[in-house]
Amino acid sequence: MPPAKPATASPKNTARWLSCQSPKGGTGKTTSVLNLATFAARDGLRTAILDTDMQRSLSAWHRLRPADAAPIRLFSRPLTEIEAAIAEIDATPDLDIVLVDTPPAIEYLPQQTSILLDRSDFVLVPATTGKPDVDSVIGWMALLKERRIRSAFLINRASRVTLPAKSKGAEPATGTLSFRDAQRRLNKAGLLCPLPVRQLEDIQNTHGYGVGVCEISGAKGAEDFEAAWDFVRNMMGL
């Protein structure tokens, strides 16, 4: 009787994982994931997104995606099933990058969050400029640093105006007081993406059309997420 053939190993990709995390809702995690994913796909990377939020906002966005848009593969499982999600994606060949949208209050699922952190090559921590958001993400960054997770903040929904100079001959300062205070505090607490994402209607409208801001002709805010994507891509070595 001939010897049994060895089992064929499951295909396994070597995709890099980018996880967007914040303990609070409304900080722009989903907006960041979908827009960064469209830049990745536009640049020719074989791109997948993983929706672990029970609200399924990212999945709803993907269902609206035009047939002729750059391909982005969707995986959708709650964070409670993160091990199964990782196994499914790792067995999917031909992927370069996986971007993960996470639910708010992820600190209440410490075991599952820990598994996702172990799989992530980089964690992006979005925040608005409000004090409660800044306080929350600074605490989260402390945890990431303790675990030696490569990570950075991204300021979202920023309002930027020119403030008057305080003294004669001085250059005017750029940014609202809340923006400048958030920028200062986040930069002190950890690595900060150099350019913020502004509060712009075109960026928010991406949710309703299944596209990223870079895929809307003449849309305002494409340069914001292009800068964020360039930062992330460099940090992840893509």
Rank of each mutant, 00 (worst) to 15 (best):
A9I: 14
S10G: 08
S10N: 13
K12M: 10
K12V: 12
N13W: 01
N13V: 00
T14F: 07
W17S: 02
L18N: 04
L18R: 00
L18W: 03
Q21S: 15
S22T: 08
S22E: 11
P23D: 14
G25R: 04
G25K: 08
G25N: 09
G25E: 07
G25F: 07
T27R: 08
T27P: 08
G28A: 13
G28D: 09
G28H: 11
K29F: 11
T30Y: 09
T30Q: 05
T31N: 07
S32D: 09
S32P: 06
V33E: 08
V33N: 12
V33H: 09
L34H: 15
N35I: 10
L36H: 07
L36A: 07
L36C: 09
A37F: 10
A37L: 10
T38A: 15
F39G: 07
F39M: 14
F39W: 14
R42Y: 13
G44C: 14
R46W: 05
T47A: 04
A48K: 00
I49P: 01
L50Y: 02
L50W: 06
L50I: 02
D51N: 04
D51F: 00
D51Q: 00
D51K: 00
T52M: 14
D53F: 02
D53V: 05
M54Q: 14
M54D: 10
R56Y: 06
S57A: 09
S57M: 07
S59C: 08
W61K: 08
W61F: 05
W61N: 06
W61P: 06
H62V: 02
R63P: 02
R63N: 10
R63D: 13
R63T: 13
L64E: 12
L64S: 06
R65H: 07
R65K: 08
P66N: 12
P66K: 02
D68S: 15
D68Y: 09
A69H: 05
A70I: 06
A70N: 14
P71T: 12
I72G: 02
R73H: 14
L74K: 01
L74V: 04
S76H: 06
S76A: 14
R77V: 04
P78H: 02
L79S: 04
L79W: 01
T80D: 08
E81F: 09
I82V: 15
I86K: 11
A87F: 05
I89P: 05
I89G: 03
I89W: 00
I89R: 00
I89M: 03
D90P: 01
D90Q: 13
D90Y: 05
T92V: 03
T92D: 07
T92G: 07
P93K: 03
D94Y: 03
D96F: 00
I97Y: 06
V98K: 01
L99Y: 05
V100N: 01
V100P: 07
D101W: 00
P103S: 05
P103V: 00
P104H: 04
E107R: 12
Y108N: 13
L109S: 12
L109I: 13
L109N: 08
L109K: 13
L109Y: 11
